[in-house]
């Protein structure tokens, strides 16, 4: 089995939004729509005793994606390699998956009448390239690979991170993306 996944090392992320724009270019996303956004978590505290980190957010490519369960046309589906995709030929734009997504990472592209979201650059993964946001990240904060391969970079990163590996709140969907944060308190 393969399980393609992304790990983001938040200690390396400088919140420069380069990934967000790289993604827009790579995937030809409409203006006003993002697959990938960088949130600023903080600053917490009072000046000058502050703490913050940046949180790049994409589709979590959950292990048990609720968006797939609820999609009436099976346009949302999970591939063998773990990537969750939307087949635009089938998507009727009912937006039910947006309701089912715990993280607000799906969006309805009004112009196209379909759901848009991070594809983990599946078209690149298929030709053995990493997603655009991974390849250009100025902090090299993103790691991409196969979690089921114990020798992959992601597997190593997950092992090394230990208890510093964080995930978004799980409501049964088992989010896939992992966030490493050692230097600050995880608050997301």
């Amino acid at each position: 089995m393969t399980r393609k996944i992304m790990i983001v090392d938040l200690d390396r992320c400088i919140g420069c939004h380069s990934c967000a724009v790289a993604c827009k270019q790579e995937n030809g996303i409409s203006l006003g729509v993002f697959y990938n956004k960088v949130r600023t978590v903080g600053p917490f505290g009072n000046y000058p005793d502050l703490e913050l980190y940046y949180l790049p957010v994409i589709c979590q490519h959950c292990n048990k994606p609720e968006c797939v369960n609820v999609c009436p046309t099976a346009a949302s589906y999970k591939r063998q390699d773990g990537i969750v995709l939307v087949d635009h030929n089938k998507c009727i734009g009912c937006q039910y998956c947006i309701m089912a997504c715990p993280y607000g990472v799906r969006t309805y592209d009004k112009a196209k009448g379909v759901i848009e979201k991070c594809t983990l650059c599946a078209h690149r993964v298929e030709v053995n390239e990493v997603p655009a946001c991974v390849s250009i990240c100025p902090g090299k904060a993103r790691i991409f690979g196969d979690l089921d391969d114990p020798n992959s970079e992601v597997s190593k990163a997950v092992r090394e991170a230990g208890s510093f590996l964080h995930r978004f709140a799980d409501v049964g969907n088992e989010p896939g993306v992992g966030y490493i944060l050692k230097s600050r308190k995880w608050r997301s």
Binding site: V70, P72, T73, K90, I92, G93, G113, V114
Partner: peptide, 21 residues
């Protein structure tokens, strides 16, 4: 009017477990 592509509605039986279906 809620749907982006009502013309593709025939796909609706694609996932019978879906609440919407």
């Amino acid at each position: 009017f809620h749907l982006g592509h009502p013309e593709k509605i025939f796909h609706i039986l694609g996932n019978i477990r879906s609440g919407i279906a």
